[in-house]
């Protein structure tokens, strides 16, 4: 049983089905990635989780119980389409949004001051939002999302619009939150951050789940018998002896060393390859090629199209 579950969610809009029987199970304390091409239905699912829209059928469970309206106070949501009142002062606005989340004025002020210090926003407290850069506005929005210390955090494309420095600052904070026991769901297109942060993922395409599970399992599942070899020695000799029983995918020079990518045949093992290598020269590196999430994403989506 997960900390949060969405069961068999169906949502229909006027002319199309936005979600077709989608279920996700988010383990407690995990970082859960919601992936999928544009228009797949991710934002709709996140809106349903935040009770902004209601599903046609299906239910939401939090800690094994049906979710109620009160549960919203233990959720923090950073929407993809986010903004602030441009003419309002930064501090005043942050305080207002924090109080709408149910924090008392004193609590909100104290926590805001701490976070503003941490994110180096203090000098901007009395400035109008329109004077802030986009990155700074994003920081303010992030602070507002997590200020009421929710047990479940939902980020929709959290890193879009951030520069690399702020992205890494944000990632650090997300990991810190996870270490404190917060469960986090986020949707993204940035596969690098998925590999870096996520424990589990669900890949949604065309309103349906096409891939689901822990990141490690998925990557191993997609891994083939492909190996990357670096070595010092005579390249032609090696390729000649390897090509009898292995399929050479790639052959190039990297930093003065030879690099060969090969696929193992079904009846051979890594030791067979190594024995050939040892005769041909000095082995520098020998790695199994595990596909990145990026490749898996593209492959899964394309496979789904073919079906």
């Amino acid at each position: 049983m997960g900390y949060f579950e969405a069961r068999n969610i169906v949502k229909k809009f006027t002319n199309h089905l936005a979600l077709d029987n989608v279920s996700i199970t988010v383990p407690k304390g995990s970082i859960y990635g919601l992936l999928g091409p544009n228009g797949a239905g991710k934002t709709t699912l996140l809106r349903i989780i935040n009770q902004i829209t209601a599903p046609d059928t299906g239910e939401l469970m939090l800690k094994g119980k049906k979710m109620k309206a009160d549960d919203l106070s233990s959720i923090g949501y950073l929407p993809e389409e986010r903004g602030l009142y441009k003419k309002m002062k930064v501090g005043e606005q942050a305080l207002y949004l924090a109080r709408l989340k149910g924090l008392s004025k004193q609590d909100a002020l104290k926590r805001l001051k701490d976070w503003f210090k941490k994110f180096e926003l203090e000098p901007w407290w009395d400035k109008k939002v329109e004077e802030l850069s986009k990155g700074m506005q994003q920081k303010v929005q992030f602070i507002i999302t997590i200020l009421h210390e929710p047990k479940l955090l939902i980020f929709d494309e959290p890193f879009s619009g951030f520069d690399p420095i702020n992205t890494s600052l944000l990632k650090k904070e997300i990991i810190k939150l996870q270490n404190k026991g917060t469960t986090i769901i986020f949707s993204t297109h940035d596969m690098g951050s998925v590999e870096e942060l996520c424990d589990h993922i669900t890949l949604i395409n065309n309103s349906r789940t096409i891939l689901e599970g822990s990141v490690d399992e998925i990557r191993n599942y997609y891994a083939s018998n492909r190996f990357e070899i670096r070595f010092d020695g005579e390249i032609n000799l090696l390729t000649a002896s390897l090509s009898h029983s292995y399929k050479i995918i790639d052959n190039k020079k990297v930093n003065g060393q030879n690099q060969i990518t090969v696929d193992l045949m079904d009846n051979t093992t890594t030791n067979d390859v190594l024995s050939i290598l040892l005769q041909a020269g000095k082995v520098v590196a020998f790695n199994k090629v595990i596909p990145g999430m990026n490749e898996i994403f593209i492959k899964a989506v394309n496979d789904a199209k073919k079906e």
Partner: peptide, 16 residues
Amino acid sequence: IEEKTSRIVEVLISSV
């Protein structure tokens, strides 16, 4: 319209 174009509305309706 201001809340809609400034995109603050979705932030707001996740709390109210």
